[in-house]
């Protein structure tokens, strides 16, 4: 199985799920999927194409909305599944039931972009402190950081 065959096969077999497919450079395939068809698509990709390895999940702030990119890989190509999310309602379904290794990346997305991951097995913050203020999402483009006043214990006035 080579990259062109995989490309063709994905285009024909998954035509019901994907809305857009491209291969901008060798061994790199980008597909777009509607949020509600994500789990279904990933299942097919995993079972039929051997995309069991999730490299990472990238979040992207496009001002108009968010984009979540699932970078999958098998031993021939790297496939990126793109999901568009509404900025007013930043929610996405957890893919941990298909790929258990996605948990850390989902927690990261939740911390950094404030995209709520539904059905996530463990929703504690991963990289941000436990007492990080609500509503501060560092990787959003409109994020403006205000460091909170430092309080030194024992020196209260």
């Amino acid at each position: 199985m080579n990259q062109a065959e995989i490309f063709e096969k994905i285009r024909t077999n998954l035509s019901a799920q994907i809305t857009d497919i491209s291969m901008p450079s060798p061994r790199r395939i980008f597909v777009s999927v509607a949020p509600e068809k994500l789990i279904e698509t990933l299942k097919i990709l995993k079972d039929d194409f051997g995309f069991y390895h999730l490299s990472t999940i990238s979040g992207l702030d496009k001002i108009t909305g968010f984009e979540v990119l699932y970078h999958l890989a098998n031993s021939f190509v790297s496939l990126t599944v793109r999901v568009q999310i509404d900025r007013a309602k930043p929610e996405i379904i957890s893919i941990c039931e298909v790929i258990p290794g996605a948990i850390l990346y989902e927690r990261e997305i939740q911390d950094m972009f404030g995209i709520k991951v539904i059905n996530i097995p463990d929703s504690r913050p991963l990289v941000l402190p436990d007492d990080w203020p609500e509503g501060e999402y560092p990787l959003r483009k409109d994020w403006n950081y205000q460091p909170p006043a430092e309080t030194i214990p024992g020196e209260e006035q």
């Binding site: 990261e108 950094m112 941000l128 950081y145």
Partner: peptide
């Protein structure tokens, strides 16, 4: 990831 420097 996190930026903890006051960029302003």
């Amino acid at each position: 990831f996190v930026e903890v420097i006051d960029t302003k």
